[in-house]
């Protein structure tokens, strides 16, 4: 199991339309966890067209990064929803009984959990 990493980022809470049109820093990972909320991992500040947007430093999430092939095998037996699903997407549900956000790209998968749950996921994934 690769070393999990705490995701140092910014939590952005704003109106959905401002998040739809926001300019995110280059090379950042943007997790749109709700219509009015996004988590941006990476350096630099997002530009959001909303004077009331809240942009706060956030280190509450941690991620385990897996190559896509490896993740598919693992998640096929541990996910409570059907796996694999093709494409780039963010899904969330129970993995081994623990709530996990699964961020999927063509080459890799990030299992994103609140950092305070990390040991639960690690123990259950073995």
């Amino acid at each position: 199991m690769p070393e999990p990493k705490v995701l140092q980022g910014r939590r952005v809470v704003s109106v959905p339309v401002a998040l739809d049109t926001a300019v995110w820093p280059a090379n950042s990972i943007v997790l749109r966890v709700a219509p009015d909320e996004a988590l941006v991992v990476g350096d630099g500040d997002p530009v959001v067209d909303d004077p009331h947007a809240l942009i706060e430093d956030d280190a509450s999430l941690a991620a385990i990064t897996l190559p896509l092939a490896e993740a598919g095998d693992l998640l096929a037996t541990l996910c409570d929803w059907e796996w694999p699903i093709a494409g780039e997407f963010l899904s969330q549900g129970l993995v081994a009984g623990v709530p996990v956000r699964v961020w999927t790209r063509s080459d890799r998968v990030l299992l994103i959990v609140p950092s305070s749950y990390l040991h639960e996921v690690e123990e259950r994934l073995g």
């Binding site: 809470v13 704003s14 009331h52």
Partner: peptide, 12 residues
Amino acid sequence: MNEFVERRVKLR
């Protein structure tokens, strides 16, 4: 925060 827009809160 949607509510800010909906009800036009004027926080100065």
